[in-house]
Amino acid sequence: MIVLKSRHEIGIMREAGKVVAECHAALKDFVREGVSTLEIDQFVENFLTRHHMIPAQKGYKGYPFAACTSVNDVVCHGFPSEYRLQSGDIITIDMVAQYKGLHADSAWSYAVGDISETAQKLMEVTERALMIGIEEAVIDHHISDIGHAIQQYVEAQGFSVVRDFIGHGIGRKMHESPEVLHFGPPHKGPRIKKGMTFTIEPMVNTGTYECRVDEDGWTARTADGGLSIQYEHTLAITENGPEILTVL
């Protein structure tokens, strides 16, 4: 069941989203060669708690960290570790803040030092794909219109869209209805209504869209070892169009 949010609830989610956006902005200076992904996780946890937010990913279905740190061929849910970033790496950092019982979720990606032309294009295309999806998130459009627009754009750029992991409704729970696919035909699924809140979070690969999951049960990688990048925002649907809640 899709739960529509009140203006008050969206206001709380906006507060949470602003802190998430502030954390991502601070990470631009923190993410650099030599920093470990465990140090990034600790930075995120400290930032969120210092701003009176609960790092909602920590403990979610047993996940032990405040952030997901997905490097190079990791599609999503990468475990923070002692691995230290190297020049040429690309990393996606995903976090969820809970505030007064409501959630805001955003993943953003960062280049470490000098990256390849392919990696740079992948980052640019994926961020643009997110914005193309957001443009489709308007009242009376279908949820599938979002994914269709993303897939059409990404594949025209020579990349592939991950099928195994998708966007989702968000609010009192981290994951709610509806499911938001980043691929598929248009004009399917529920119509978008005022008060809906959900994420759009395309994961885009340089090679195949297929993934495999590590023995830890969380870390998803590209099946062919190609690069992967993700960008994600939390949105609220208003009569004036989609409002991005995870921005400054």
Rank of each mutant, 00 (worst) to 15 (best):
M174P: 00
A129L: 02
D224A: 06
V96F: 07
D164F: 14
A56P: 03
I200E: 06
Q57R: 14
M131R: 15
S228C: 14
C211P: 12
P80N: 03
G113S: 10
H77I: 10
C68D: 10
I200P: 00
G59C: 06
K193H: 13
G226Q: 05
Y209S: 12
M203V: 13
A129R: 04
M131H: 15
Y83N: 05
R172I: 12
E239P: 05
T92S: 11
D105A: 10
G11P: 01
S228K: 01
Q151Y: 09
G171Q: 08
R221F: 07
L130E: 01
L235F: 02
G169N: 10
H187R: 14
V161C: 09
G34Q: 04
T206I: 09
H233S: 13
M131C: 10
P186I: 08
D105P: 04
L48I: 07
K61E: 15
Y231M: 04
S160I: 11
S70R: 01
T206S: 03
F47H: 02
E215Y: 14
L122F: 00
M53E: 08
K58G: 01
F183R: 02
L27C: 08
E176P: 05
M95A: 06
I229K: 08
D29T: 13
V247S: 13
E136F: 09
M174L: 15
S106L: 09
L245S: 10
L48E: 05
G241D: 06
G59Q: 12
V162Y: 01
V138F: 01
G34S: 10
A149L: 04
G226M: 07
T118A: 08
Q98I: 13
D140H: 12
Q152D: 11
T92F: 02
H77G: 11
T118D: 11
R163F: 05
A220S: 14
M95I: 13
A223E: 08
E243S: 11
Q98L: 13
V154N: 02
N46D: 15
A26L: 03
S177D: 15
E15I: 12
D29R: 04
V154F: 02
I93C: 06
V20E: 00
D224R: 01
P185T: 11
E15R: 15
L227G: 09
D216K: 10
G11V: 06
I91F: 03
K58R: 13
T234N: 06
K188M: 14
L48R: 03
Q86R: 15
A56L: 07
R14P: 01
L85W: 02
S70Y: 00
G34T: 07
V35T: 09
Q42H: 10
D94L: 03
M123H: 02
I2V: 15
R84D: 06
S6R: 07
Y110L: 08
T222N: 04
W218Q: 11
E201L: 12
G217E: 03
L4F: 04
G101F: 09
R84A: 14
M123D: 00
T238K: 01
P55K: 12
M13C: 06
V19F: 00
H8D: 14
I40G: 06
E9D: 13
G226H: 00
H182R: 01
T69Y: 00
L181P: 04
V31Q: 01
G34V: 03
K100P: 00
